[in-house]
């Protein structure tokens, strides 16, 4: 399937995946992530169930200190 991840096209095997799958596949190891699918916030406790499908627009934002 093809999705938009952080404004870039990305390809993954399979028809769908969860946010948790995506985090593993991309090796995002950071603790503080903000995740959205098609503009909708997916909280940490919802990431195992939140399904990403072909064509979805996904945001994974890594919050880092500094200000």
């Amino acid at each position: 399937m093809e999705i938009i991840l952080n404004n870039r096209n990305e390809y993954f095997d399979g028809e769908h995946m969860t946010i948790t799958d995506l985090i593993k596949a991309k090796n995002f190891t950071f603790k503080l992530l903000v995740t959205k699918i098609n503009g909708r916030l997916v909280k940490k406790e919802e990431r195992d169930e939140a399904i990403i499908k072909n064509g979805d627009d996904v945001l994974v934002l890594h919050m880092i200190s500094g200000g």
Partner: peptide, 15 residues
């Protein structure tokens, strides 16, 4: 400045 505070605010506002 701290990442966990940034995270708290973004999630709270979006929710």
């Amino acid at each position: 400045d701290l990442a966990d505070m940034k995270h708290m605010l973004v999630e709270t506002v979006l929710t």
